[in-house]
């Protein structure tokens, strides 16, 4: 008798707990779905509106795509209605700057991190502490002096001025140094020395390949950062042939009211974010992993 009643109570307890969990799950998923819809709505509108004509855009909003996608695309590429829009040169400049910057950042940060990690030269301690300290300095502190020098030397409007500074990237250095500490035993370097390799060759042939995972992560992050960078390029670049995409978008914004074809504006936004979005969607797993490992700096 007692056994039976007890098991009924247990069953009830069990069932209640189950119901509670199900309710909690429903709430959680609803919350997640709402947030997802919120995030994606912007991109949905962006994609939908890039398929509409100027007239459609200025009349009634609809959630359905229209048929002017290619018209807008061709328009944005070849017959832009804004004097500032030149997708080809914007892409070219952005790509040159972002690609070279990220390669330089990764290579020289690794080289510097390796230099500090693997060798014991005089003053190493001070240098390591120094790099950590300068990591904290906000980048725009340099902007006034940088612009002054660039104006004086007449090197504004040149892409290399945006590229070369990326050789000194303290945050990437820090990440690489952490990675080396965790993965590269010094014996490996010694083995390479014994095998007859010189130091530079050891770095290129042994150390860099071992750092591939870290390089991949930092390559993506520095590429995205450079691709999206607006502040310094905005100050340094005035020549229409040298503008990168973010500057172009800024100019388009001040030009946007009224006279520019609306469909083209949507198309330009879409085109400028597309490369990064595609890369992101392919590599999102490792990028998200990289966020946490990179963020524990300081």
């Amino acid at each position: 008798m007692t056994n039976v009643s007890k098991s009924v109570v247990d069953n009830n307890k069990n069932r209640n707990a189950k119901i509670k969990l199900i309710i909690e799950r429903i709430i959680s998923y609803s919350f997640l779905i709402v947030l997802t819809v919120f995030c994606l709505s912007f991109f949905y509108v962006l994609v939908i509106n890039s398929t509409k004509s100027n007239d459609e855009l200025n009349s009634v909003f609809s959630l359905l795509p229209s048929k002017y996608f290619f018209e807008n695309l061709i328009g944005a590429l070849f017959h832009p209605t804004s004097q500032y829009v030149n997708i080809f040169s914007g892409f070219k400049n952005s790509l040159i700057v972002a690609l070279l910057s990220s390669v330089l950042t990764c290579y020289f940060s690794s080289l510097t991190a390796y230099g500090v990690y693997a060798y014991n030269f005089k003053g190493k301690r001070i240098i390591a502490a120094f790099i950590l300290a300068i990591m904290m300095i906000p980048s725009q502190l340099a902007s006034v002096g940088f612009l002054k020098i660039a104006v004086d030397l007449r090197i504004t409007d040149q892409l290399w001025v945006l590229i070369v500074p990326s050789i000194a990237a303290p945050a990437t250095y820090f990440y690489m140094h952490q990675y080396l500490k965790a993965t590269l035993p010094l014996e490996l370097i010694e083995a390479s020395r014994m095998d007859g390799s010189n130091e530079f060759m050891t770095f290129n042939r042994i150390v860099l390949p071992i750092m591939k995972p870290a390089l991949a992560v930092q390559m993506i992050f520095s590429f995205v950062a450079s691709w999206n960078n607006y502040y310094m390029p905005g100050l340094l670049i005035e020549d229409d042939n040298k503008t990168t995409l973010p500057i172009m978008l800024g100019l388009l914004r001040s030009d946007a009211i009224g006279k520019v074809d609306n469909g083209q504006i949507w198309m330009v936004i879409l085109l400028s974010i597309l490369p990064v979005v595609i890369v992101y969607l392919i590599l999102s797993r490792s990028i998200i992993k990289g966020v946490t490992s990179g963020s524990v700096k300081g």
């Binding site: 912007f42 995205v224 607006y230 388009l252 974010i273």
Partner: peptide, 9 residues
């Protein structure tokens, strides 16, 4: 990962 300038526009 999206360009802040593009997102603002």
């Amino acid at each position: 990962v999206i360009m802040a300038s593009a997102f603002s526009l």
